[in-house]
């Protein structure tokens, strides 16, 4: 018989990769993401009794991670003078592997991580995690209009840096 706490721990383990990558988006490097993700897991276990069955555990623990980041670790990182992002940390793999795919995806990640923190946060939530604008606004504690303007800025920069998707809206070329 699996008790609730055991089931809760298993669920956290299952979603940990997603939590960790969100922490990477917030913190900007692997080391800080490790610390933040671990802190979020610890806090989640501590406050397990506050989690409501039937609601989304992933979004609950994402909020925990963001709160810890904003209240504690982010300030500490800035104080330590390591607030800028080491872009090489965003690389997915040793490029000696020779894969054009990996190189491209590393470029994608680097482009995202070069965005201002607020913009990369919202584009991750909406475009990667599938948050609605309303949910993203609730998570970030900003109006939906702010979510949209941040998304517009972020998508314009990413399109400029990476090019637009040639498979979409092929008719856009006709007018050029």
């Amino acid at each position: 018989m699996i008790d609730r706490s055991q089931e809760f721990r298993e669920a956290i383990k299952d979603l940990f990769p997603r939590l960790w990558r969100y922490c990477f988006v917030l913190a900007g490097d692997r080391s800080a993401a490790d610390d933040l993700a671990q802190a979020a897991c610890l806090r989640a276990l501590e406050y397990e009794h506050q989690f409501q069955i039937g609601t989304r555990l992933d979004r609950w623990i994402f909020r925990i991670a963001q709160t810890i980041w904003l209240n504690q670790l982010r300030a500490a990182k800035i104080r330590q003078g390591s607030g800028t992002l080491p872009l090489e940390e965003a690389a997915l793999a040793d490029t000696s592997a020779g894969s054009e795919t990996i190189l491209y995806l590393s470029q994608v990640l680097s482009a995202v991580m070069e965005l201002p923190e607020a913009q990369r946060n919202v584009i991750f939530l909406v475009c990667v995690e599938g948050y609605s604008y309303k949910d993203a606004a609730g998570h970030l504690g900003v109006p939906a209009g702010t979510v949209m303007s941040r998304l517009a800025s972020a998508r314009a920069k990413l399109t400029s840096a990476l090019g637009r998707n040639p498979m979409r809206h092929p008719e856009t070329d006709e007018a050029k």
């Binding site: 491209y104 994608v108 990667v128 998508r155 637009r164 998707n165």
Partner: peptide, 12 residues
């Protein structure tokens, strides 16, 4: 101008 490759973003 906004149509970046969101699919690649998610895969990355």
């Amino acid at each position: 101008a906004f149509d970046c490759d969101i699919g690649a973003l998610k895969i990355a």
